[in-house]
Design a protein around this nucleic acid. Structure first.
Length: 198
DNA sequence: CATTAGATCGTCT
DNA sequence: GACGATCTAATGA
């Protein structure tokens, strides 16, 4: 299916399930998306990077839809998102997991610590490494850059849950914006957020 | 299988 | 100064 920019003009909560089963291609490595999470914009979503205001860290989220938003976190990891909603609304879909369907030798090299192929892109930071995506790809147009996204022709059957790893109110049941394909080995087990120990 | 600690740094308070 | 849309290795059952 052709890249339809209009599809990304909707809020992330609507776009997220459409991405399931979609394909992400970077330099010959192909990923089938199996798990995503939606994040909304200012004042709407306590778990979102765009909850408070636009800043250096989240400015790409406020840009045009259909572009890649990559961010650096925990002092060592990079995660990948697809920007949604009209420009300025700042919603995005976090790519949490997927199955490598082509270029798997390359992905294995990049994720040498991975013991099984299902672990290659199981988790947002792992997925980003396996695909060779970095902070330099932040803002890339997903229809014309080295990172390409194509959506499935038909929607897939999916399940939902609360979001993983989101601290505070953003992890509450009313923000059940994790979407995944049931029965996929690459989907990470749901982990409820727990307060740090003292 | 489950739980825990440590790594590591930009951003915000 | 604390914390985070995380991951890995180590330890114990």
């Amino acid at each position: 299916m052709a890249f339809d920019r209009g599809l990304f003009e909707a809020p992330a909560t609507e776009v997220a399930p459409l991405l399931l089963g979609g394909l992400l291609e970077v330099d010959g490595v192909l990923l089938r998306i199996t798990e995503v999470e939606a994040y909304l914009g200012i004042g709407q979503d306590p778990g979102s990077h765009a909850y408070r205001r636009q800043g250096p860290k989240n400015s790409t989220m406020f840009g045009p839809p259909g572009h890649l938003y990559t961010y650096f976190t925990y002092g060592m990891h990079v995660c990948s998102n697809v920007v949604c909603s009209p420009q300025g609304q700042a919603s995005a879909v976090l790519l949490r997991a997927g199955e490598i369907v082509d270029g798997i030798e390359i992905a294995r090299m990049r994720r040498a610590t991975s013991r099984t192929d299902a672990d290659l892109a199981r988790g947002p930071a792992r997925l980003t490494v396996a695909m060779g995506i970095g902070l330099a790809d932040d803002g890339a147009d997903l229809s014309s850059s080295r990172v390409r996204l194509t959506l499935p022709v038909a929607a897939s059957a999916f399940e939902t849950s609360q979001r993983t790893g989101v601290s505070g109110p953003g992890g509450a049941p009313e923000f059940a914006w994790r979407f995944f394909l049931p029965g996929e080995p690459s989907v990470s087990p749901y982990k409820a957020w727990v307060p740090k120990k003292r």
